[in-house]
Design a protein around this nucleic acid. Structure first.
Length: 310
DNA sequence: AAGACGAAAGTGGTTGA
DNA sequence: TCAACAACTTTCGTCTT
C-alpha cells in the first residue's frame, strides 16, 4: 500500500487515509471504512492466532509443534505406539503388559492408521488446502470446508462420489457461508472434477447436512470487480447504492447476481464519468457483455438514472 | 477501429406433471 | 422422464464515438 503503487487515474483526494483501513477477516480483504474500497484482495491471513501483550506472555504462548487445526485429522497430536515389545529401557515387557500393548496397537491401527474415514479426510484436507491456496482463500475458509467435509464423511455421504468433487463442493459452501464470492467455475477450474459433478455434490451436501447457505448477494461481487479493474472506492460505493435501490424495486430477483453486480459497477462508473467497457467488466465475473447490457438497461430504466450528457 | 446496442436463435439447468 | 420455461450465451447487423 505504498504511495504510487495504485491505479493511475484516480485523483489523490480519494485515496484512503491509512487509519481508515480495516481488515475484514471474514472476507480476507482490507477494506477502507470511508469509501468501501478494497485495498488488497486475497490476502491470506498471516498473523498468529493469538496476540501477546507482554514478552512473558509471548514466550508462554509460543507453540510446541504446529498449531491445532482441523486441517490435520487428529490435530497432529497422536503418536504411534512402538511395535517392539519393549519399554523405553529396552527391557522385555511382562506377558500382561504385552497383551495390553497388543490391544493398544490393534485399537490404534483400527481407529487411526487404517481407518478409512480418517485417511479419506486426510486426503480431502490435502486437496482442499491446494484448491484454497490456488484461489487465495483465507484459512478460515479452509477450516470451514474441512469441517463440512468431515461431517459429510461421518454421515457416510461421500461413498460412491469422488473425493475431489465433494471437497470442492464443501469449499464452495464455505465460501458462500463466509460471503467470499468465488464462482463455481473458478473452483472447477483448479479441480479434476467437472462443474456439473461439483454442483451435484453441492446440492447433496446442503440437503443431507441441512446446511443453511445464505443466498448470494450481488453486492458481494462489487469489491472484486472494482479491484480487478482498478476502479476507485467511490465507484464501489455508488454501485452498492444502486444495488440497494434495485433490490427494493425487485428487479434483481431471479437474475444472476454476478450479472447484476457487473451492471451496477458499469452504471456507477458511467455516472461518475469513468470509462470501462462492458466487456471488461463482464469478464471479471464470467458473464457476457450482453448480460451486462441487459441488466444495465433494466437498471437505468427502473432507477431512472440521469447519465452525464454525451 | 472499437464500443454500444438490440434482435434472434441456441444452450444448459430447473420445475412440475 | 419429459416438456415447458426463464435466464444466459452466441452471433450478427447497425449505429455511435
Amino acid at each position: 500500500m505504498s504511495e504510487g503503487s495504485e491505479g493511475p487515474q484516480e485523483p489523490a483526494e480519494e485515496r484512503c487515509p491509512p487509519d481508515k483501513i480495516v481488515y475484514d477477516e471474514s472476507r480476507g480483504q482490507y477494506v477502507c471504512t470511508e469509501t468501501g474500497e478494497v485495498i488488497e484482495e486475497r490476502v491470506v491471513d498471516q498473523g498468529p492466532e493469538w496476540r501477546a501483550f507482554t514478552s512473558d506472555e509471548e514466550s508462554r504462548r509460543a507453540r510446541a509443534g504446529s498449531p491445532l487445526s482441523p486441517m490435520i485429522h487428529d490435530g497432529g497430536l497422536t503418536s504411534v505406539i512402538d511395535w517392539r515389545d519393549k519399554d523405553a529401557t529396552g527391557k522385555k515387557l511382562e506377558m500382561k503388559k504385552r497383551l495390553e500393548a497388543m490391544r493398544w496397537r490393534k485399537w490404534q491401527l483400527r481407529t487411526r492408521i487404517q481407518s478409512s474415514v480418517d485417511r479419506n479426510i486426510t486426503q480431502a484436507a490435502v486437496e482442499l488446502e491446494r484448491i484454497a491456496d490456488q484461489l487465495g482463500l483465507p484459512k478460515s475458509i479452509k477450516e470451514e470446508a474441512v469441517s463440512i467435509y468431515r461431517r459429510a464423511i461421518e454421515r457416510g455421504i461421500v461413498r460412491g462420489r469422488s473425493v475431489e468433487a465433494v471437497a470442492a463442493a464443501a469449499l464452495y459452501i464455505a465460501c458462500r457461508i463466509h460471503r467470499i464470492p468465488r464462482l463455481l467455475d473458478e473452483i472447477a477450474e483448479v479441480t479434476k472434477a467437472d462443474k456439473k459433478e461439483i454442483s451435484r455434490c453441492y446440492r447433496m451436501l446442503v440437503k443431507e447436512l441441512e446446511i443453511r447457505v445464505p443466498p448470494t448477494d450481488s453486492a458481494d461481487y462489487v469489491p472484486r470487480i472494482v479491484s480487478a479493474l482498478g476502479l476507485s472506492g467511490r465507484v464501489a460505493k455508488k454501485a452498492v447504492e444502486l444495488l440497494e435501490e434495485a433490490k427494493k424495486l425487485g428487479i434483481t430477483a431471479g437474475k444472476d447476481p454476478t450479472g447484476v453486480a457487473a451492471a451496477a459497477v458499469y452504471a456507477a462508473a458511467q455516472l461518475l464519468g469513468i470509462k470501462r467497457t462492458q466487456k471488461d467488466i463482464a469478464a471479471v465475473v464470467g458473464v457476457t457483455e450482453v448480460t451486462v447490457r441487459n441488466r444495465y438497461r433494466e437498471l437505468v430504466k427502473a432507477l431512472k438514472l440521469q447519465l452525464p450528457e454525451e
